[in-house]
Amino acid sequence: MQGYHIGGKQMKVHIKYYAKYVEYAGAKIEDLEVERMSISDLLEVLKDRHPRLKEEKMSIVALNGRFGNEKTLISDGDTISVFPPVSGG
C-alpha cells in the first residue's frame, strides 16, 4: 500500500469515489495510510495521486457518510466519500 509517511501517527482511511471520479481515480474504493490531517488537506493528497481530480474546481466530500466542515480532522478507520460537483439541468 502506498502511503504518505511524513512522521506522526498513520491513519488508515477508505476513500470512496463517485460518478466520473471512479474513472479519474481508476478505482471505486482506495485504502490509504496518511497522517492525521483535515479533510481539505486529504483532498489535496488525493489530487496529487490522481491529477484528473484537479479538472474540477472543487469536490464535495463526506466523512463517514455525512457532510460537514472540511477542516475536520480525519481519524483512523474513517471513510471519505468524494463526489464531483455537477451543474447541468
Binding site: 460518478a19 472543487m58 464535495i60 466530500v61 457532510f67 460537514g68 460537483p85 455537477v86 447541468g88 439541468g89
Partner: peptide, 26 residues
C-alpha cells in the same frame, strides 16, 4: 443537478435544513 448518468437532489428549507452553501457545492 445532473450530468452523465448521475445527479443530485436536495430539499432546502430555511431554518430547518442545511442550505446549498453548507457543504461545499460551488
Amino acid at each position: 443537478a445532473v450530468e452523465g448518468t448521475f445527479g443530485y437532489a436536495k430539499a432546502i428549507i430555511p431554518g430547518k435544513t442545511s442550505c446549498l452553501s453548507c457543504f461545499g457545492y460551488p
